[in-house]
Amino acid sequence: MTTTAALRRRYTNDSVTTASPGQLVVLLYNRLVKDLTLALVGLERRDVEGAHRALRHAQEIVSELSCSLDLDVWPEGEGLLALYDYVQDRLVQANATKSAALVAEVVDLVEPLRDAFTQVAATAEAS
Rank of each mutant, 00 (worst) to 15 (best):
G22F: 05
G22K: 05
Y29W: 13
N30I: 08
N30S: 10
R31D: 02
R31S: 06
L32M: 09
T37E: 07
L38I: 02
A39F: 03
L40I: 09
V41M: 02
V41T: 12
L43I: 02
L43M: 07
E44P: 00
E44C: 05
E44K: 07
R46E: 15
R46M: 11
R46A: 13
D47N: 08
V48S: 08
V48H: 01
E49S: 13
G50A: 07
G50I: 05
H52F: 06
R53S: 12
R56M: 12
H57P: 04
A58P: 10
Q59C: 12
E60N: 07
E60L: 08
E64R: 10
E64G: 03
C67I: 04
C67P: 00
C67D: 14
S68E: 00
S68N: 09
L69W: 05
L69I: 01
D70R: 09
L71H: 00
L71R: 11
D72Q: 14
P75S: 00
E76S: 14
E76I: 14
G79C: 09
L80W: 01
D85T: 09
Y86N: 08
Y86F: 14
Y86V: 10
Y86T: 14
Y86M: 11
Y86S: 00
V87E: 03
V87I: 08
V87F: 01
Q88A: 14
Q88E: 14
D89H: 13
R90T: 12
L91E: 08
V92A: 13
Q93K: 14
A94C: 04
N95Y: 03
N95E: 12
A96R: 07
T97D: 11
T97L: 15
S99A: 14
S99K: 11
A100K: 12
A100C: 05
A100S: 15
